[in-house]
Design a protein around this nucleic acid. Structure first.
Length: 790
DNA sequence: CCTTGAACTTAGCAGTCATACC
DNA sequence: GGTATGACTGCTAAGTTCAAGG
């Protein structure tokens, strides 16, 4: 097992017949309580036998068969229930840890060395058969020193760090100022004037022309010019930490005011009509509009909603409405449905008018002027109020997301250019912080996180960072072999922490796992590499003819299931065995590790290296390899594109980018199959008549018959070709049904690889990237020649 | 050191749009 | 001309990372 270099997981990468069993975990279906209970029971029995590995394995096997039965959803339910049970355990252990932290250093030290000792004792068993008796000897002997070592250098490091910090000038903080009028006045004012002039100049031209003769042509032309002119990648970069010199914008667009329901739309409680206060009605309508959605079948959702809804009720409403089950929102739903129907049926003119209105808003608020250049803003609209739709098993789903007011919003811009708040309102604050890239921000009430208005991905600010990201990934390509040697060496380390780190890094490298930060209890329970728990992996000395197989089965980001059976090096296998010893299913697999430790180590190995760089590197590298492998320069453009898509798919599989099977998938597949069958039939027919014609031509020898036969032959060929195309389409679609290509294309694949490939193989870039993507990757399209290699 | 929070990237979904197809 | 379908876009949740403060 020394194949690491090209990583397993990659043998899978043609993406065509992947050995990985990946399943989506979202449960979209309604689930009956029956299932729940069943799962619960199963779960219980599992709990009982959790310390017996054999039983556990069995259990997992059963699970897998179940997957193959396509009962993914049930499966996930099971996972969930399981987690719920074990959450308790986790809480405890977490609390223990927290307590640990709180205690005095000396005690901590003692405890630590004790723990190390325990682990050490187990060590030799597994190490013995491997190859280093040395380690086993030194391990237990030095363990105590180790723990001291462990602590001491840390203390030293800390000192050094603080010293260094003290010397360094503190990072420039925003000069948080309540708006304009003050010192920097003259300079900023003059600067602003310049900008304003520029700004004034352009839009005015723009606005006048559309009213004139040929609006569309002219508009397009100008837009093009604007977007294509700024080749920021040929300009000098900003000094460290500074994100802009000048920034001017119009502020965000707020959600439209609440529009009360018409009088004939009635909410009913306990069968009786009831007029709600405006605030309560608004929240009720959020719920009513979602009545068809799966969310409303979930207890957590309903509970959260109801609790929050009551906060918006008047006193008397609160008294009456005490049970969500007695609420009847159906008229509200009907109303919204009718409304969207109406929307669909609007006349052309109305639609056009609407479109024009929207464009007007974009023109006004969708752009900013940054360092003298007009750039598109990504999300200039403030999120409207509604019910929080967390993904997966989110404890906060259904909570009311409040309406954001100007008073909640912080504006960030150049001095003296602050946009006016909507009439009758004030901004929460106006600041001028050029060390950040956001134009406006507010704190959302459900999770308490800050939300930002930022630039579009075609902007310099985003593009530059994107470019930089890929440069770091390329740098990793040069050093990755060395890093691999290092961590392989570390598998043998006598220090548990280092071993864990090395094994985790191996997974990150080989499987492109995410780092895996710790999460709070009030978020969905998902994990990444460092936060894997014992319950997420199972070990098999032997599985499907392969040795030392680790089976990963966990919910990752967005509660997407990751399932993968991975043959690993023996040493890794043994190490994981050790990590799992004496642990409950809910315990951390890498109990000595977190993302901070991992990233710190990575940064020591290479400047700028973090866990996620491996994902970028892995993805881009894979694309390059696959393209080189799959592209036949003699083939047609269509075939080349197929090759590209396959390479892309390989990456998507590696990164576990899934999507739900499109709702219409089965149907459209059926249609396609019908087409294929029809085509087959007509081929048969054509074949028959061709034979007949040929016979006749032979018999009669007439020229007309002969040419008719030839004609038929050609037709036949054409038909066959069409059939082939359809078949390719069918397999392509089938292979793609659960895989999302977009995410990797947008976030992980160095666009220069694709651009170079297009240039080298004479494939028009439009075939690979749509307009938005071309905008985003402008820099790459401009700078990468056919010779570029990742 | 550990926790928390800010800032920025990555993610899938749902609605809309464009286009192929009848 | 209408409809079905896939592509695209907007949306916003959910990650990662870094740095500050306790």
């Amino acid at each position: 097992m020394s194949d690491h270099g090209d990583g397993a997981g990659k043998d899978v990468l043609t993406g065509l017949s992947n050995g990985m069993d990946r399943h989506r975990s979202k449960d979209k279906d309604h689930h009956s309580h029956k299932h729940k209970h069943k799962d619960k029971d199963r779960e219980k029995s599992k709990d009982k036998s959790r310390d017996k590995h054999k039983d556990k394995h069995k259990d997992k096997h059963r699970d897998k068969d179940k997957h193959k039965d396509k009962s993914k959803d049930k499966e996930r339910k099971h996972d969930k229930e399981e987690r719920k049970h074990e959450r308790e355990d986790r809480k405890h252990s977490k609390e223990d840890r927290k307590q640990d932290k709180g205690e005095k250093k000396k005690e901590k030290l003692k405890e630590k060395s004790e723990k190390t000792y325990v682990e050490v004792k187990n060590e030799p068993v597994s190490e013995d058969d491997d190859e280093m008796p040395l380690a086993s000897r030194s391990f237990s002997q030095t363990s105590q020193d180790d723990s001291e070592d462990d602590d001491q250098p840390l203390a030293f490091r800390k000192k050094i760090k603080t010293e260094v910090k003290a010397e360094k000038p503190v990072k420039r903080k925003a000069e948080e100022m309540v708006d304009d009028e003050d010192d920097g006045y003259v300079t900023s004012k003059t600067k602003n004037k310049k900008i304003k002039e520029e700004k004034k100049g352009k839009p005015e031209k723009k606005q006048t022309t559309p009213n004139g003769a040929s609006p569309t042509k002219r508009g397009k032309k100008e837009k093009k010019e604007e977007e294509e002119t700024w080749k920021w990648w040929e300009e000098e970069k900003h000094e460290d930490g500074v994100k802009w010199k000048s920034l001017e914008h119009q502020g965000p667009v707020f959600a439209t005011d609440y529009e009360p329901l018409p009088g004939n739309v009635k909410f009913k409680y306990n069968g009786k009509e009831m007029k709600l206060s405006s605030a309560a009605e608004e929240v009720a309508s959020f719920y009513g509009a979602m009545l068809d959605h799966d969310y409303v079948t979930k207890d957590v959702f309903n509970k959260n909603f109801f609790k929050d809804w009551r906060k918006f009720m008047t006193h008397s409403e609160k008294e009456i409405i005490t049970d969500l089950k007695k609420c009847d929102f159906t008229q509200i739903l009907t109303y919204f449905k009718a409304k969207s129907e109406e929307k669909k049926n609007r006349t052309k003119e109305e639609k056009q008018q609407l479109k024009a209105d929207n464009e007007e808003i974009v023109k006004e608020y969708g752009w900013c002027i940054i360092d003298g250049h007009k750039q598109r803003i990504g999300n200039f609209k403030i999120e409207p109020p509604g019910l929080f739709r967390g993904r997966g098993d989110h404890p906060k789903m259904g909570m009311v997301k409040r309406r954001v007011m100007p008073e909640d919003v912080i504006i960030n811009c150049s001095k003296g250019t602050a946009p006016k708040p909507p009439p009758g309102h004030k901004w929460k604050e106006v600041r001028h912080d050029n060390t950040v890239t956001w134009l406006a921000s507010w704190t959302e009430n459900v999770q308490g996180q800050v939300k930002y208005i930022m630039l579009n991905s075609a902007s310099r600010l985003k593009g530059e960072r994107d470019w930089q990201k890929y440069e770091i990934a390329r740098k990793l390509k040069d050093t990755v072999e060395k890093i691999r040697e290092t961590y392989k060496e570390d598998w043998k380390s006598k220090e548990m922490k280092i071993r864990q780190r090395a094994v985790a890094l191996y997974f990150i490298d080989k499987l492109a796992l995410r780092a895996g930060n710790e999460k709070d209890e009030d978020q969905a329970d998902t994990v990444g590499c460092c936060s894997l728990r014992v319950e997420h992996i199972t070990l098999h000395e032997q599985k499907n003819g392969k040795q030392f197989v680790v089976v990963f089965d966990f919910l990752g980001k967005d509660s997407i299931r990751y399932y993968n059976e991975v043959p690993v090096e023996k040493r890794v296998f043994k190490n994981v065995q050790i990590f799992m010893e004496n642990k409950k299913p809910g315990d951390d697999l890498f109990d000595r590790l977190n993302t901070t430790i991992m990233n710190k180590h990575l940064n020591d190995l290479m400047d700028g290296l973090t866990a996620k760089v491996f994902r970028t590197f892995n993805a881009s590298n894979t694309l390059q390899e696959q393209l080189d492998k799959l592209t036949d320069s003699k083939s047609s453009v269509t075939e080349k594109i197929l090759a590209y898509n396959r390479a892309n798919r390989a990456v998507a599989i590696l990164c576990n980018h899934q999507r739900s099977v499109p709702k219409t998938f089965a149907k459209s597949m059926e249609n396609l199959q019908k087409k294929i069958d029809a085509k087959r039939e007509s081929i048969e027919e054509a074949e028959k008549s061709y034979k007949d014609l040929k016979k006749e031509a032979k018999k009669t020898g007439s020229a007309t018959a002969k040419s008719a036969a030839e004609k038929k032959e050609k037709q036949l060929e054409k038909l066959k070709e069409q059939l082939m195309k359809l078949e390719v389409q069918a397999t392509d679609r089938e292979e793609n049904k659960e895989i999302a290509l977009g995410t990797s294309k947008l976030n992980y694949l160095d666009p220069r690889i694709s651009v170079a490939w297009c240039k080298k193989h004479d494939v028009p870039i439009e075939k690979i990237y749509n307009k938005t993507q071309r905008d985003k990757f402008q820099w790459a399209i401009d700078m990468a020649g056919p010779e570029f290699e990742f």
